[in-house]
Design a binder for these strands. Structure first.
Lengths: 116, 116
DNA sequence: CGGTATATATCGTCAACCGAACTATCTGGT
DNA sequence: ACCAGATAGTTCGGTTGACGATATATACCG
């Protein structure tokens, strides 16, 4: 799962949102690091709905404009939870490897100290 | 950055490795969850070298077969470090959102405003 | 009256990953 | 002696998902 998809699920975790609301929520959740584009969003929305991770909660007509609200399904929440654990494991593994940067020589121990 | 790329950099963090060694290391680092394919690896290797995140350390001819060892550059280590922090932040954000699933906190009521 | 914000849809493109096939050598088992 | 399997690298074609751009439409503010 890529970052935009992950953030869409994250945004929908607390409450149902419509497309534009998701774009804003993702911006806030990522400290404005990720700006979701419409092309990314609506493609992802269709895909995630097809996979059953999200579903249309309701469709509202506000001033003649359609607002389609999406909700995270239980299945989607489960997938997101697993993904969170996955990210944590990856981060921990990489950090451990980075701490060993410089490497060791068997029998001699570390030659390059872990530079703080 | 996607998972295979992330794991390649992770594998190279401790010591230089040749292509096949990277495939094995990624398998171990991911608890056999990720099996890197040659097509993924060699494409990523070229790309990462072009970006300066890794570099060819040396080329060894063992029994007539070439072994090309790649090393993580300082720039690559910096990028990987930033990526680790990014993953942690994403994981923390998603977890916080998931905790709010349903949105009601007993005794306090809803913290975040409802759907606009 | 024009710019910004709200809101959704669609198009073509590109990067990255994936599976598979191919070559080649060394090692271990039968 | 032979074959399977591990080691090691290259290449190709296909698919997915993200991206940028564009289009449409209304509301609000200065």
């Amino acid at each position: 799962m890529q970052e935009p998809t992950f953030l869409i699920l994250t945004a929908l975790a607390t409450r149902p949102l419509h497309g534009y609301g998701i774009i804003q929520a993702v911006g806030e959740l990522s400290d404005s690091e990720v700006r979701l584009r419409p092309g990314t969003l609506y493609g992802a929305l269709d895909r995630l709905a097809e996979q059953g991770l999200i579903e249309v909660e309701r469709e509202e007509a506000v001033d003649g404009r359609l607002r389609r609200y999406y909700r995270l399904t239980d299945g989607g929440a489960a997938v997101l939870t697993r993904e969170v654990e996955r990210l944590r494991r990856r981060a921990a593994t990489a950090e451990a490897q980075l701490r060993d940067r410089g490497g060791i020589i068997p029998g001699l121990g570390r030659i390059a100290p872990t530079t703080p």
